[in-house]
Simulated scan of single mutants.
Amino acid sequence: MLLESDMRFVIALILLVLTGCDKETPAEGQAQPASAENSAAAGKADIILESAHGARATLSYKFAGQKAPTAPFADANGQDVTLADFEGKPLLLNIWATWCAPCKAEMPTLDALAKLEKDRMAVIAVSQDLEGRAPVLAFFKETKVKNLVPYTDADNAILTAFNNAIALPTTILYDSAGKEVWRIAGGVEWDDAEMAKLLRAAD
């Protein structure tokens, strides 16, 4: 017979499995609450987005004004970089993995967006594959992704830098000062006209 404490553990484990492709343990003290200047945006209710193909995602302003984490990840040459290296213009950060079906489904349109927006904003996809670059390079070759750099985070440092659990894929828009504008949990079609309007919120 399971003890009450064991039952609570089992229930918590089931909930984690059901809520997304991946959930991570919250990190200690990295994320900051939304700033007062963005309190209006942070108070907006979450919005459900649905693509023409039936994919659903959630747009949230809950963390608007929060500074981007400083966790390091690797560039295409294996050198450490951080999100601060992209400050100076808007940044769209996509957190994904090759084993996550919704992540892979949105990658071609994210790649097209990276080409379209290259002069106005940075569009980066940081893989959480524990095997590093090998599966990412194979996937990019298979799907003809040419505009995204194969950034990798084999230690899952970015996920654990947030104080909340993040499901894959999650995409976060930062303004030129490195402050969050909004985030989307779930896969979307990045070449959609409505997405183009949302991206202008970082201007």
Rank of each mutant, 00 (worst) to 15 (best):
A74D: 01
Q66V: 13
K67P: 10
A193Q: 11
C21M: 12
A12Q: 11
P169W: 15
L173E: 04
T70C: 09
L3A: 12
P33K: 10
E24Q: 08
K197F: 08
D85V: 00
A52R: 14
G187E: 09
L2F: 10
G186I: 15
L16W: 03
Y174E: 11
G132D: 00
G43R: 02
A71H: 04
A165R: 11
K89V: 01
D175I: 00
F86Y: 04
L16R: 06
A68P: 02
A105V: 13
K179L: 12
A202H: 10
D203Y: 10
L15W: 08
A134R: 15
D85M: 13
T98Q: 02
A34T: 00
A154N: 05
A97K: 03
F63P: 05
Q32F: 06
L159S: 00
A112D: 04
D155Q: 06
S39I: 12
S5N: 06
Y174H: 15
T170W: 07
F162W: 13
G54C: 04
V136F: 05
D119M: 03
L13R: 12
D153N: 06
L198W: 08
A45T: 02
V123E: 10
A105R: 05
D111I: 00
Q30P: 13
S51I: 10
L110K: 11
V123K: 15
A112G: 00
A71S: 07
K44P: 15
L159Q: 08
E194T: 00
V81P: 01
M195K: 02
D203W: 05
A84R: 09
L49P: 07
D80W: 13
A122M: 12
Q79H: 03
I172S: 03
D75Q: 05
L3M: 06
R133H: 11
G132L: 02
S176M: 05
A40E: 11
W182A: 04
A41C: 06
G43W: 02
D155T: 01
A165D: 09
N147P: 03
P108L: 10
I95R: 04
L92Y: 03
A185K: 14
